[in-house]
Structure formats: structure tokens, C-alpha cells
Simulated scan of single mutants.
Amino acid sequence: MFFIFGLRTRVDRSGVVQQMCRNCGNHAAQVISRRSTKFTLFFIPLIPVRTRYVQQCSFCGAQYDIAKAEARRLPVG
């Protein structure tokens, strides 16, 4: 008997906000996304392993992790 297992990451875009970038300092669109990684067994996602919230600058492309509270606080438009 054999088992097929692994990890799968799903990226959900939460929205876009206009903010000053921490990296380049330009006022540009910042894409907020949620990345959730789950343990899979036979290609069926079962157990959530990790959830991260990421903010990415559309001008310079830099991305950095943000807290869940900060991701929910941002006025998404």
C-alpha cells in the first residue's frame, strides 16, 4: 500500500489598497493576499498548516508579511 501526500498552497487576493511602500517609498497600489498552506492526502486538502497575509507593491514588486489584524484593518477598495 502506498500513500500520496504533500502540501498545497492556495493564494486568495483580498484586495488592493493605495499606500506608501515600505521598500521603495512610492505611493502605489498594494495587493493584499492570503496564502494558506494545507497538508494533502491523495490530493485532498485536509489539515491547515500555515496561513500568511502578504502585501505586495505593484511599483517595485517587493512583498512582505503583514499581521492578520493589519490585513483586516486596511480599507480594501
Rank of each mutant, 00 (worst) to 15 (best):
I66M: 06
M1F: 06
R35T: 00
S14F: 04
L7Y: 12
L7P: 00
F42H: 03
L74K: 13
I44P: 01
F39C: 01
V11G: 05
A29M: 08
F39L: 11
E70N: 06
L7D: 05
I47W: 14
C24V: 04
H27Y: 10
Q30S: 02
H27M: 11
G61R: 08
L41I: 09
A71K: 01
F2T: 10
F59K: 14
K68I: 00
L46F: 12
L7N: 11
S58L: 14
M1R: 09
M20P: 00
Q30L: 03
G61F: 07
F42G: 00
V11P: 03
A62Y: 11
V16P: 02
S36E: 13
R34M: 01
D12M: 01
R10P: 01
V31E: 14
N26E: 14
I44G: 07
N23A: 15
E70P: 00
I47H: 06
P48L: 02
S33F: 06
V11T: 13
F3G: 06
E70Y: 01
D65V: 05
Q19L: 12
T37M: 06
V16L: 11
V17K: 07
I44C: 07
K38D: 09
M1H: 06
D65Y: 05
R22P: 02
E70Q: 13
F42R: 01
R52M: 08
Q18H: 11
G15L: 05
R35I: 00
S36T: 12
P45K: 11
Q18G: 07
G61I: 02
V16K: 14
Q63R: 12
